[in-house]
């Protein structure tokens, strides 16, 4: 490191690794109840992580949740953008993930035909 500019460059590169420990922007929440896992939630999770890595979306948080009582619509995947409604997608397959991330997570356009629930932001 030879200058302050070098420090800044390094910091910008390393910063994203720690974002998870601070409040973040968009959240993707995957249903990991028993039937969720049986319906392929782990595979959906893997597809989400791959897609986020591919697009370098390091500040998107991925969380899991347990059973929410819509077991017949598994796999369930929620997208929650700051200040917007929480959208629940149902019957999500790994191949749907890139569509949801591209349209909704990145551009804010809800993929209407897959929505099974909506919770308004209070």
């Amino acid at each position: 490191m030879k200058s302050l500019a070098d420090l800044h460059a390094l910091r910008d590169k390393l910063k994203s690794d720690l974002k998870l420990r601070k409040e973040s922007g968009t959240k993707i929440i995957i249903g990991m109840g028993t039937c969720g896992i049986a319906a392929g939630a782990r595979e959906v999770m893997a597809a989400v992580l791959d897609e986020l890595a591919r697009r370098h979306l390091t500040d998107v948080q991925v969380q899991q949740t347990g059973c929410i009582g819509m077991c017949d619509k598994e796999v369930l995947l929620d997208v929650l953008r700051p200040g917007e409604a929480r959208i629940t997608y149902g019957n999500v397959k790994p191949e749907d993930v890139s569509k949801i991330i591209a349209n909704h997570v990145v551009n804010g356009n809800i993929v209407e035909d897959m929505v099974v629930g909506k919770i308004e932001n209070k």
Partner: peptide, 13 residues
């Protein structure tokens, strides 16, 4: 690296 990521050594610089 983690110290730098949270703004470390900025003050020295």
């Amino acid at each position: 690296g983690e110290y730098i990521a949270v703004g470390g050594y900025e003050a020295l610089g």
